[in-house]
Design a protein around this nucleic acid. Structure first.
Length: 326
DNA sequence: AATGCACTCAACCGCCCAGGC
DNA sequence: TGCCTGGGCGGTTGAGTGCAT
């Protein structure tokens, strides 16, 4: 009963990855691109499950990953997005360039849950994380200021969308340079020298990107795209057009979601955002029906202009107390 | 210095979904 | 249409580490 394991478990190595294994994996991906994970153990000689290879790449070795301390802004983003999206870590990660879902999930479970609980215990705020988080950072800005900020953010989002939709993209846009953190290990130690080696390999790769094998290019593309266009932007040094767009969208929504500027009267802002949050989550997978989803996005963004002053028009979807409404 | 406890986070597990046949 | 497979995702585990006693 049940499906067979993804690969033959017998003889498969488990546990921590060694620097040698990392290098083997990175070398292979440099040459062939990520994707077609089934073939990776065979072709690299690694005695690792294909899933393990994929996980190691996406959570650790992939260029553009930022590791270590979360900034206050990132922290607030996570709290806010968790309230909006629930424990949909991949969706949340799509709004936080350079952070993996695993990283965010761990950070939430080890730091933020406690932090929020402490905050709630101390302040006696309402039970949902959003309210408490929003309340914790409230009273810093007047409603008028917040509305101006929101308008600016919406404008940014529209601009990003417009850029995303336009076939030609001006070259002067913000470009994500991957040079400062494709691999940044949190813990120094014996691994460091190997880390540097891997970093060099990747640096060399990004300078002279080899074309992914044509046979798995689709998978490669999907693999990169599936991380929401955040990290994918960095993969070849010069980000693809859509990646830049995704970055801009991400930045725009990040700004949009910044709740330091929310006063407590706007706690329902998140509710009005929630249906769109799922929409944007879909947007984080731009390769699938991208056009259709962009149309939805487009609709929301462009409609928003005509609906200003009616900013609760989407609030019919309620968030339950845990925000796990999916 | 030794021991036990708490914490962190990389990695694994199992389920689900989409696409191909 | 149903089965199979690859890949994605969220939850959980456990080795490693730091800190308190």
């Amino acid at each position: 009963m049940g499906r067979p394991p993804c690969c033959d478990k017998a003889g498969m190595k488990k546990g921590s990855w060694t620097p040698e294994e990392d290098i083997a994996l990175v070398s292979y991906i440099q040459e062939h691109g990520p994707g077609n994970w089934k073939a990776v153990p065979t072709n690299t000689g690694l005695f690792r499950c294909s899933k393990s290879c994929r996980l190691r790449w996406t959570n650790y070795l992939r260029p553009g990953i930022k590791r270590g301390n979360f900034t206050e802004h990132e922290e607030k983003m996570i709290i806010h997005l968790q309230a909006l999206l629930g424990n949909r870590w991949a969706a949340i990660a799509s709004y936080l360039p350079q952070r993996t879902d695993n990283d965010i999930k761990n950070y939430w479970n080890t730091h933020l849950k406690k932090k929020l609980k402490k905050l709630q215990d101390r302040e006696g705020y309402s039970r949902d994380g959003l309210s408490s988080a929003a309340a914790a950072s409230s009273h810093q800005i007047s409603r008028g200021q917040w509305e101006r900020r929101l308008q600016t953010d919406i404008h940014m989002a529209k601009q990003a969308l417009s850029d995303a939709l336009s076939p030609e993209k001006p070259s002067g846009l913000v470009e994500l340079k991957p040079s400062n953190g494709y691999i940044s290990y949190a813990k120094p130690g014996s691994y460091a020298s190997s880390t540097e080696n891997i970093a060099k390999l990747l640096k060399g790769w990004m300078r002279n990107p080899s074309k992914p094998a044509s046979t798995n290019s689709a998978a490669t593309q999907q693999s990169f795209d599936n991380k929401g266009g955040n990290d994918s932007a960095s993969i070849e040094g010069t980000p693809r057009q859509e990646d830049k767009s995704s970055m801009e969208m991400s930045e725009a929504f990040e700004s949009l979601l910044m709740f330091e500027s929310l006063d407590s009267s706007n706690s329902d802002f998140s509710q009005s955002m929630s249906p769109d949050a799922s929409l944007f989550e879909d947007e984080s997978k731009p390769d699938r029906n991208a056009q259709g989803k962009l149309s939805l996005l487009e609709k929301w963004l462009f409609d928003e202009g005509s609906n200003q002053g009616k900013d609760h028009h989407l609030s019919h979807i309620m968030i339950d107390e845990n925000a796990n409404f999916f």
